[in-house]
Simulated scan of single mutants.
Amino acid sequence: MRKPKKLLNDPNNVRQEVMQGLVYAYNGKLTAIADYCAVYGNHISNDQVVVISGGGSGHEPTFAGFIGEGGIDGCALGEVFTSPSPDQIIELTKATEKGNGVLFLYGNYSGDGMNFDISAEILAEENIATKTIRATDDIASAPLSKLSDRRGVAGIMFLYKIAGAASQFEKYNLENLYQVVAKANANVRTIGVALDGCALPQSNNFNFELDENEIEIGIGIHGEAGLRRQAMTSSDEVVKEMIDRLCDDLPFQTGDRVCVLINNLGALSNTELLVITRKVGIELNNRGIVSHDIAVGHFCTSLEMSGFSITLMKLDDELQRLYDLPCQTLGWRK
């Protein structure tokens, strides 16, 4: 049986070492709350709403790699594929909030929701106002009729971009910030495909395995079951189905302006990713959908999973204005 290989130190100390790596990589622009495994940017101004995220390690650069100017402001790091605790979230919020309120922005997973909700209740007792947006962009995780049950995956990067621009540059108040990020969330859709699984640092087994000639359409970023498994086929055929599903879901229509994210889930080669990117452009052009901006690379990973996801965000004038403002983070710069 094939065994996973990882270049780590102590498998039980991964998130602490990830935090230390982030601090070094940010080169003076990031502060760690080491006892609580949380980090925040040194850019936060006194007149802004603070945007806080958090989630399990293993998806880098999501979540903490999007801290920075034009991005989010702080992040609580959970263990690999595990939610951060209320203590982490509360300490981070107290260290960063400036009296203007805090937006919690994270993926829609039960553990994250529970712990952020607990944190919000405790913070409210100390007169710290919070609002919450849960990213729900994964179209394979629930039907459109149950949109609020959908998981958050790579599309959260676009929400970070909108939230950071609105809070830092345009000084939206908490309610207006909540409304614009909720609007962005309603207009983001993602679907993923896996060629092979991944393994937790402490495990000698992959969390799922596919046959040599098999792929899985609709895979989740923790290995959650997708829509179906099928025989390996061409890149063009896979991408066409993914674009069809994405466009039918919102729907995306002729004349729409969209931002496009082609995300490497971990181990796919850049060669494959650019072949995929080519077909995404062809399919959107054939539909008369205007690609306002295209991002290609590692944005929301799943350890060493081999696969990719495609995300589309439909723009209106407000979202485009905010999206076009600059962003300087470890995971994405524009």
Rank of each mutant, 00 (worst) to 15 (best):
G307T: 07
D293N: 14
H298C: 08
D293L: 08
R321Q: 15
T301Q: 12
H298F: 04
I294D: 06
S302C: 04
D293C: 05
D317K: 12
H298L: 11
N286R: 09
D316N: 11
N285Q: 04
G307K: 07
C300T: 06
D317M: 11
S306V: 04
I310A: 03
T311P: 12
M313D: 06
N285V: 04
H292V: 03
S306Y: 01
T301E: 07
L319Q: 09
N286E: 13
R287Q: 07
M313E: 04
F299W: 03
S309F: 14
C300F: 13
D317G: 13
K314G: 03
I294C: 15
S291I: 13
D317Y: 04
F308G: 05
D316V: 01
V296P: 09
L319T: 03
Y323K: 05
R321D: 14
D317L: 08
D316R: 10
I294T: 12
M305Y: 04
I294V: 10
M313W: 12
K314F: 01
S306H: 05
I294S: 11
F299T: 03
E304M: 10
R321P: 13
R321F: 15
R321H: 13
S309G: 14
P326D: 04
K314W: 07
D293S: 13
P326Q: 01
C300V: 09
H292K: 06
I289L: 10
F308S: 05
M305G: 03
S291Y: 02
V296G: 02
I289C: 13
D317A: 12
L315H: 06
T301P: 02
K314S: 11
K314H: 04
E304I: 15
L322N: 13
I294L: 15
M305V: 05
S306F: 00
